[in-house]
Design a protein around this nucleic acid. Structure first.
Lengths: 254, 254
DNA sequence: TAGTGGTCTAGACCACGAC
DNA sequence: TCGTGGTCTAGACCACTAA
């Protein structure tokens, strides 16, 4: 109870730890309003910047969210999208005209917001992944996925322009089954995939475009799709709101 | 050059953006020392707390690292471990007495630090994943992986105590091929796997045990191993330093 | 020892949200 | 309107690092 077990711990860390315990114990449930900065000032006898620093610790852990003019609230966690990394790419899914994310959802399908389809010179990394000499032009498809109006993923696909320029792949609406079905019609249906997964904190632009709360990392998924012959046909770079996704990979021992 | 393009942007964000640009342009390379707080105070004519706030933005993005008494430095990113999610679990690997992570490294193998092997009552989630009624006791193996002396992963495995108590699985050194080889000898060799991947910011304990810099998320990998008959035999919860790992999953379209 | 970042105080003005 | 968090100032003492 007392405030004198300071040991060598800074005041703001002590306050943050007590608030965290109170949240963990259920005293403040998800969505509940925490004591405000002035409450902490009087309760602990500290200056305002010290109280703010305590909140800063909890915000950096993504436990808490400050709303200007309203207060500081316990964040409500909801992981809603289970992304099945392997099953979702089954030929039967896009071969039958279905969208890949039909396999993901729990009923609620994300809305795709098309941002642009352009032709550009790729970065060296993308050119290398696609096996393009001299950074030959690529078709770039940029889009954003929203679930219940909230952005959950940014995705950018790169395809060899020499292969797909002038086809439905270079149109905003790529038709039933998506670009994988179109690639199959062109004789380049994807059969093998490699996904690379990283995580880091977002930059300001990603924070804005995904509407991320403070203390929320992003997950980067970079998928390369290959034909049965091993030719790369697509590179898809995705940026996911980590608080919305669980990635799942189920497989047999090789 | 001038400081009057403030628009509606707070000063600290303006300073942070200029520093970020300077880093991106290569003016300050990885490991380089940035101008200190007093430099920013005089250069921009701001108070010290404002300069600190600017650094706080960059630290939260994991771009920059403050060292007490020394200065603020550009973080050197090194993703050194490529974890091949599927190939590494091949029967031939542990069947031949090899360690799973032999497949991961680029020459450098992580050191395993054994923390404890205990028998406990599992949480409800672990009991459910293992298909244990009444939260029957489990053998818990806790360990930490270090690469070049730096911790990169915490791992905790749970196994049905009724199955493995008294065997090498319940010993700190589980022998060549690890616990998967031992489970195979017991007639419960794993053949199917499911890995779930999440990401979030670490709590203070994870930060300490992994030696994480500010602004570094952790990646959570939860693997369940099943026998050929579909019986779950192990749950392995891993906490990874996101700045050290790339996860890779390569597979054919189902 | 000199300079650095870490912590802390006691004020101030502002924009925004709830009422 | 009133309280909230967001930004900002101008000081202070401390522990740590490097020279």
């Amino acid at each position: 109870m007392a405030n004198d077990a300071v040991g060598r711990q800074p005041k703001y860390q002590h306050i943050a730890a007590e608030l965290k315990d109170a949240i963990a114990s259920g005293e403040y449930g998800p969505g509940a309003r925490l004591p405000g900065e002035s409450d902490l000032m009087s309760r602990y006898g500290v200056a305002r910047m010290t109280a703010r620093q305590a909140f800063g610790v909890l915000q950096a852990q993504g436990l808490v969210e400050a709303r200007k003019g309203a207060g500081v609230f316990v964040r409500e966690y909801q992981v809603v999208i289970r992304r099945r990394g392997i099953q979702r790419l089954a030929v039967e899914v896009w071969g039958a005209g279905g969208a890949i994310w039909d396999v993901d959802g729990k009923g609620r399908a994300p809305v795709v917001e098309f941002l642009s389809v352009t032709e550009e010179r790729p970065s060296g990394a993308v050119a290398a992944a696609l096996g393009l000499a001299d950074r030959a032009p690529v078709v770039v498809r940029r889009r954003r996925y929203l679930l219940d109006g909230k952005p959950v993923m940014l995705a950018t696909s790169y395809l060899d322009a020499a292969l797909v320029a002038g086809t439905a792949v270079a149109e905003p609406d790529s038709g039933p089954g998506g670009i994988y079905a179109r690639l199959a019609e062109l004789g380049h249906g994807p059969r093998r995939f490699r996904e690379e997964i990283r995580s880091r904190m977002p930059g300001p632009e990603e924070t804005a475009r995904l509407g991320l709360a403070a203390g929320t990392p992003v997950v980067l998924v970079c998928r390369t799709a290959y034909t049965a012959e091993g030719t790369p046909v697509e590179v898809n770079e995705m940026v996911l709101d980590s608080s919305a996704y669980v990635l799942e990979y189920a497989f047999d021992a090789p």
